[in-house]
Design a protein around this nucleic acid. Structure first.
Lengths: 222, 222
DNA sequence: CAGACGTGTGTGACAAACTCACAGACCCGC
DNA sequence: GCGGGTCTGTGAGTTTGTCACACACGTCTG
């Protein structure tokens, strides 16, 4: 028996797959690399492959007619992209787009092979449904937050969420506005207020967090 | 060969299923009736069955901690409920609830039988993925509307959407507020404004539409 | 029938968020 | 050092959300 290709290590959800199914998966899988910023899918591009992200992250966002945008969720390594999966077999057009947030490496499985895997492997079915389940609950959360949560709370959460190891974010106010589906000015003003409180310091294109406990307290506010 | 049970007629998506698969579907399906207002699923209730709605409609809504609610989508006859399907195999907890909006009749398929059907029938897989696809695009639309659309436009759309054959809605302002995920006062004021313009007339628990072209014009506003 | 109660609706005052318009500030290349 | 693009700050006006409370309507009950 051959050894598994290395990409399989990134998918704990596919660990249970073995034998003939494993061989089929390996045989049909095709690897691709994409550069940061590449559009992976978007309106009008029919999905032809199941997309399994081996490394990097993909940002999925909705673009409205008015040109405004909102981030729906992120796909991390070891996850697949429901959106494309859904449209894979249903042929329905989606209205969201997926952008490579970093250089990425992914595995593509053509629709017919995907369908075959669904048929023959219980473990693969479980993997797919788990991915769906996660995304759907993510979307519910997004809806709840947009509809009911105050902007300052959502912003504090987002800042804590996106900060890097140095407690810093290299994002413009506009990018943060897209994350939260709001206007740039709202973000600017709110950040200014946080700065006034000494929670963070602002500079062009970067935000450095100082008082994270305070922000966590706000983020937990009901 | 036996004749199909009548419920199958309600599901065009299952028309292609035949032979052994059809027999299995009929054997494992269990029919239930529920009264208007019954909670079909909700937080903390693990999903044990695929839910196929034969007649009536089910309203799926998200309830937030603060007690506020928003309608996510409706399941109509001939459709299945993704939410439960998703959690069916993934065991993940959902945070939404499903309410019977009318008396309903539904078919339940236990999780193991669902899984078996996914394995053996391509047509059944297509049916399931189509249902997913539809719901996900619905949710994207909801997010876009909440985030970017003006309240008056959304309200006009909703009124046109929910009106009955007599151009009337038997709903309270509070119920409309839940439909749109906003506060009752906002709805009351906006309705009052529509009434002032002569588009509709208000009475306790009912709204009668008069100038629907005007409302459609507003609803189409970008 | 009067009163009590629950539910639905109207309204004012204020706070939060979005929109529009525009002014500076910063950065990079020339 | 100057000019262009991008990023950020700010004021003014509108829309939406929040809070508090008054009132209207229907039903039940004594």
């Amino acid at each position: 028996m051959l050894t598994k290709p290395s990409w399989r290590a990134a998918f704990p959800g596919l660990a249970d797959i073995s034998g003939q199914v494993s061989a089929q998966l390996d045989r049909t899988a095709r690897s691709v690399q994409l550069k940061r910023g590449a559009q992976i899918f978007g309106p009008g591009k029919p999905a032809e492959n199941l997309f399994l992200l081996v490394s990097g992250t993909v940002r999925v966002q909705q673009v409205s007619e008015g040109g405004r945008e909102i981030v729906l969720y992120r796909v991390h390594s070891g996850e697949s992209c429901v959106l494309t999966t859904a449209c894979l077999l249903a042929f329905e057009d989606y209205t969201a787009e997926g952008i490579a947030e970093t250089d990425i490496e992914a595995i593509l499985i053509p629709r017919d092979d995907f369908d075959a895997l669904m048929a023959i492997s219980k473990a693969f079915r479980a993997f797919v449904f788990e991915a769906y389940s996660k995304r759907i609950t993510d979307l519910f959360l997004v809806i709840e937050e947009i509809a009911f949560k105050r902007m300052d709370i959502r912003l504090a959460q987002k800042l804590l969420d996106l900060k890097d190891a140095e407690h810093t974010l290299h994002l413009t106010h506009q990018q943060l506005a897209v994350e939260l589906g709001t206007a740039r000015e709202v973000i600017s003003r709110q950040l200014k207020e946080f700065e006034r409180r000494g929670w963070l310091s602002l500079s062009r294109g970067a935000i450095e967090l100082h008082d994270m406990p305070a922000m966590q307290r706000l983020a937990r506010t009901f």
